[in-house]
Amino acid sequence: MQKWGMVIDLDRCAGCQTCTVACRTENNVPFCGDGNAWKGRAIFWNKVITVRIESHGSQREGEPSASPGTNNHAGPRLRFLPMPCMHCERPPCVLVCPVRATTKSVDGIVMQVPSRCIGCRLCQASCPYSRRYFNWQEVDYPGTLKEAVNPDVSIRTLGVIEKCTLCVHRLQKAREQARDENREIREDEYVPACVEACPAKARTFGDLNNPDHAVAKLARSPRAFRLLEELGTFPQVSYLHESTWKSESRKSVGAEDEEEIDG
């Protein structure tokens, strides 16, 4: 059985937000409407946040700098951190969900069933990565966006939680195709929208259980790290970065100037 995972190369990420837009269109992520974004209610299944790294020249020896623009200069540098759901191997959200609306599928995807969800927001509170979003208001697709709704993904209602599903509808399609043709599913058949859209090829997606696959190799690379590993959630999304990721060195920037996308 596969274990779907993703590797995101932070040195390649340019912060262009294409993944965010691709995710929104693919998954019918609703717009939060006027006056809600500044209250922290905008929904982003995939969100690129800006992070300041205090560089202490901690580039590892013997490893070439992955992105040519980075030097070992002292002082802070800005990094973009794309945040999909981490699809943890031991997800706290699945433990606390009172109605089994969120489950860990056999191939490693943390699923969300909005029609089961009661909106208690316990999963949201328990997610250390804050990767779950609550529908604080009625779904709104302004203007012509109503016609651009993807029929493969159901629209969530008021008062339920939604989150990144690694575009599981694509997996279902690919799986059915493979079943029709009486074969195993091919690696390149199923790719989430954000991976497909990334212009910098910063994201690699595939089966972590297949040791020959690029994603498994990258996840084992010395540059790889996972967010908040100390919490023991074992995320299936890893990041690549040339310097170590120090918890004390990260600090949010642009709490004032970061632009939110809202309707």
């Binding site: 433990l95 969900c97 009172p98 109605v99 208690c120 529908n135």
Partner: peptide
């Protein structure tokens, strides 16, 4: 009043309750 879907809340918790959830 706090949960997002009070219409489902009691039924789902009782009928589909998850043993590991503090809410249950």
């Amino acid at each position: 009043g706090d949960v997002g879907r009070p219409d489902r809340f009691l039924y789902n918790v009782v009928m589909h309750g998850n043993f590991t959830a503090p809410f249950v």
